[in-house]
Each structure stands twice: as structure tokens, then as C-alpha cells.
């Protein structure tokens, strides 16, 4: 895919996310929208995977540690061919394969079950060490939130991966600076994450996580690092693509249409405005719907 095609795909995924959340009537908006570029880069460029054979042994593994962001994964997987796009409307509904937080056994390709924060990096490390035991060349990717780094389990895993020199592991931190109760630096300051990971023995790359090319380049660079596991600190804009949500932590855990918030359109208009902004890439292009 060209860079333009990837950007358009990311935007399509954002539209899917908004529609899914509205259909579900609950769920998280900011994180999934902010992660759309990273997921697009992973599924449409970086990952070795096969939507027709989700259990393919030689596939790369992707663990989503911050399970609440799973709408972006479902939407990306649908666009990649793992499930029908129409199924996205079943998100969070009774009997759906698309549980509110991802469950491995419900939908092939999810790799693991997550939601309670902090346990993804260690599972990814476990996968990485097991694959290395078998002489495999697969890579393991793990996406974590930044608020999630409050969890002690994360740092246990960070120490462990460095000790084991898991060079087949790449962790992507979604550094969007928000969590449910507010700004990460107010709730529990994370400080200089690059220095922290570096002090723990990791190779650190910092990027604009909404720049697909930067995401791809960072993942490729991580593949070449032979000394240590790599963390990509991906600075993203929460709610990216929907102007009234961007940077506002209030949109962490709610969906368009749920609440009247300062700076946002009235509840009844929120979904419509969000979709209109996404269709035009924030006014940069003309949409066929205009």
C-alpha cells in the first residue's frame, strides 16, 4: 500500500470505530481513534500474518495489552479480512464475537485475552522467549497504553525482557497522555519514559504515532536492533481525527452521543460531526458524501 492508501485506510478504520461505538452505545473513543495509524501500519505493512489462517504458526504475534482499545483492532482486522465489516456493528452485544474487551477464544486472531491492565508485556515476553526456544523468526509486538504503565506488572515484565535480551519483542507505548481520571502527569506522573525504559536496558525509539510512515520505520528499525528489546514510544493524539475529542481526556471512556461536553457538539450531533470530519480528513479532502 502507498502512504496515501494507508492514510485512507486509517481513516476508514476511524469511521468504523465511531460507527461501532455508536451502535454499541458504550465503549472507549479516544484511545482507539488515536491508535488507528499504528494498527494500520501493523496490519497492512509490518505484521506477517494471514487473515485466512489466523493460527498460522509462522505469523508475527500482536498482543493488545490495553484491551479497552480493542475497537481499533476489530475494525482493522475486519478491513484486513479476518471478519466481515458488517459484524463490527455487533460490538459489545450479547452473543457477539466482539466482546467489550477482547477474548482470544471468541475471535480467531486476537492472540490473547486482555482488559485488566498491565499483563500484556509479560505475555508478549513469554511468547517471545517461547518462540526463541523453538528457533522461530517470528516477532512479537505488544501495544500498551501509557496510563497502563502505572501497573507494577509492566515493570516486572520490562526488567524480564531486558534480562532475557528479547530482541524479537517490540513494545509500542501509546503515549496519548490521558487516562480515565485525567492527564497522566496529574494522575500518576510517568515522567521521562524514554529515560525510564533506557535505564531498564531497552532500546528506545520515540515517534509521532499518528504518522504511519514513522510507525513503519520505527518497527523496521526495531527489527535490526540486536542488543535489547525495543520500545517505541508513540506520541499519539487521543481522539485523533475528531476535532472535538482530540486531547480531551473526557473522551477516554465514552462514545459519541453519550454526554454533552464543553467544546463538543450537542449529544445528538456528535456522531454526525465526527463522521463528517473523518470523511474529509479534517477538511483536507473533499468527501463523496459532501
Amino acid at each position: 500500500m502507498t502512504h496515501t492508501e494507508l492514510s485512507e485506510m486509517a481513516n476508514t478504520i476511524r469511521e468504523d470505530i465511531v460507527k461501532m461505538l455508536v451502535s454499541a452505545g458504550s465503549g472507549h473513543s479516544a484511545g482507539p481513534l488515536g491508535l488507528a495509524d499504528i494498527f494500520t501500519a501493523l496490519y497492512f505493512d509490518i505484521l506477517k500474518h494471514n487473515p485466512k489462517d489466523p493460527d498460522w504458526l509462522d505469523r508475527d504475534r500482536l498482543i493488545l495489552s490495553n484491551g479497552h482499545c480493542v475497537p481499533v483492532r476489530y475494525a482493522t482486522m475486519a478491513r484486513a479480512g479476518y471478519l466481515p465489516v458488517s459484524e463490527l456493528a455487533t460490538l459489545r452485544k450479547f452473543g457477539s464475537r466482539l466482546q467489550g474487551h477482547p477474548e482470544r477464544l471468541r475471535l480467531p486472531g486476537l492472540e490473547s485475552t486482555s482488559g485488566p491492565l498491565g499483563s500484556g508485556v509479560s505475555q508478549a515476553a513469554g511468547m517471545a522467549i517461547a518462540l526463541r526456544m523453538d528457533g522461530g523468526r517470528q516477532r512479537v509486538y505488544c501495544i500498551t497504553g501509557d496510563g497502563e504503565l502505572d501497573e507494577g506488572n509492566i515493570w516486572e515484565a520490562v526488567m524480564f525482557a531486558a534480562k532475557e535480551r528479547l530482541t524479537n519483542l517490540t513494545v509500542i507505548v501509546d503515549r496519548n497522555n490521558i487516562q480515565i481520571d485525567g492527564i497522566t502527569e496529574d494522575v500518576m506522573p510517568l515522567g521521562d519514559l524514554a529515560k525510564k525504559f533506557s535505564a531498564f536496558g531497552w532500546h528506545v525509539i520515540e515517534i509521532d504515532g499518528n504518522n504511519i510512515e514513522a510507525v513503519i520505520n520505527a518497527c523496521r528499525l526495531a527489527e535490526a536492533v540486536e542488543e535489547a528489546p525495543t520500545v517505541i514510544i508513540a506520541h499519539t493524539i487521543p481522539g485523533k481525527g475528531v476535532e472535538y475529542m482530540e486531547y480531551d481526556y473526557h473522551w477516554h471512556g465514552i462514545y459519541p452521543g453519550q454526554e454533552d461536553l464543553p467544546g463538543a457538539p450537542p449529544k445528538a450531533e456528535q456522531a454526525k460531526v465526527a463522521l463528517a470530519q473523518l470523511r474529509t480528513l479534517g477538511g483536507q479532502i473533499r468527501s463523496e458524501h459532501q
Binding site: G118, S122, A125, G126, I129, A130, D134, A157, M159, E164
Partner: peptide, 25 residues
């Protein structure tokens, strides 16, 4: 070669194990 020492970190202990099990161990 099949033994993993995780240090004093019991949350990591079982979650690393879960990852290994997801990879056939």
C-alpha cells in the same frame, strides 16, 4: 534451556507463563 527465572515477580511469573502457553509450551 527450558527453565526461566523471573525474579521476585509473581504477576510476571504467571503472565509470562500464559504467553509461553499461547505459543505451545
Amino acid at each position: 534451556e527450558r527453565y526461566v527465572e523471573v525474579g521476585i515477580a509473581e504477576q510476571n511469573l504467571v503472565t509470562v507463563a500464559a504467553g509461553m502457553a499461547l505459543t505451545g509450551k
